[in-house]
């Protein structure tokens, strides 16, 4: 398959918050109530076209689906290092999963390559309004404190599923772009420096003459 970039995203969150459903909805556009619990790790793929500064990139997304249970933590954390962005899900109908978000952020910061990884926080299952236990403002406040983007999503209705990934992709692409530019800047800066040094040398030469 042809693509310009391969981007690996990781989906984390407590057991049963809907990570698998989220990813299936995104890649296949279907919602099933009959998913099995993810044992260990799994992944889904999708190729998207990403528009950036009037240029089109074909991006191959590798979406890693992790097991939520604590017991698999040692296994799943090994995958954090390779991921470029994270989808952190919690269940709006399950308060404990929201309280765990803090821990998840800690985990991500410790195990991911960057100290400040790109994370999108998703309050999942927002179609179940009557069962909802986590207030929108509360979640928003929390996200603000941690400087995260917050979205309310639902795999059943498909609400914000695509958007969450797009936002994450934006962040990653921005980071890539800036780091590439920075690298180029550094490279060009070094060249300038060396030129200066050369000139200085020459100046000295001239002087010594």
């Amino acid at each position: 398959m042809d693509y310009d970039y391969l981007i690996k995203l990781l989906c984390v969150g407590d057991s049963g918050v809907g990570k698998t459903s989220f990813l299936y909805k995104y890649t296949d556009g279907v919602f099933h109530t009959q998913f099995i619990s993810t044992v260990g790790i799994d992944f889904r793929e999708k190729t998207v076209i990403y528009q950036q500064n009037a240029r089109q990139h074909r991006i191959h997304l590798q979406l890693w689906d992790t097991a939520g249970q604590e017991r698999f933590r040692s296994l799943t954390t090994a995958f954090y290092r390779d991921a470029m962005g994270f989808l952190l899900l919690f269940d709006l109908t399950n308060e404990a999963s929201f309280l765990e978000v803090r821990n998840w952020i800690e985990q991500l910061k410790t195990h991911s390559l960057s100290d400040d990884p790109d994370i999108v926080l998703c309050g999942h299952k927002c179609d179940l309004q009557e069962k909802r236990l986590v207030n929108q403002n509360r979640a928003r406040e929390f996200a603000k404190n941690y400087n995260l983007l917050y979205l309310e999503t639902s795999a059943k209705t498909g609400q914000n599923i695509d958007r969450a990934i797009e936002i994450l992709l934006d962040k990653i692409m921005y980071r890539m772009e800036t780091s590439v530019e920075y690298a180029m800047l550094c490279a060009s800066g070094r060249r300038r420096q060396s030129l200066q040094r050369l000139q200085a040398k020459q100046d000295r030469k001239l002087c010594s003459c």
């Binding site: 057991s15 049963g16 109530t33 009959q34 998913f35 099995i36 619990s37």
Partner: peptide, 10 residues
């Protein structure tokens, strides 16, 4: 409980 419904659901 959470896993029961997610075991061979079909």
């Amino acid at each position: 409980q959470r896993d029961i419904a997610r075991t061979f659901p079909a």
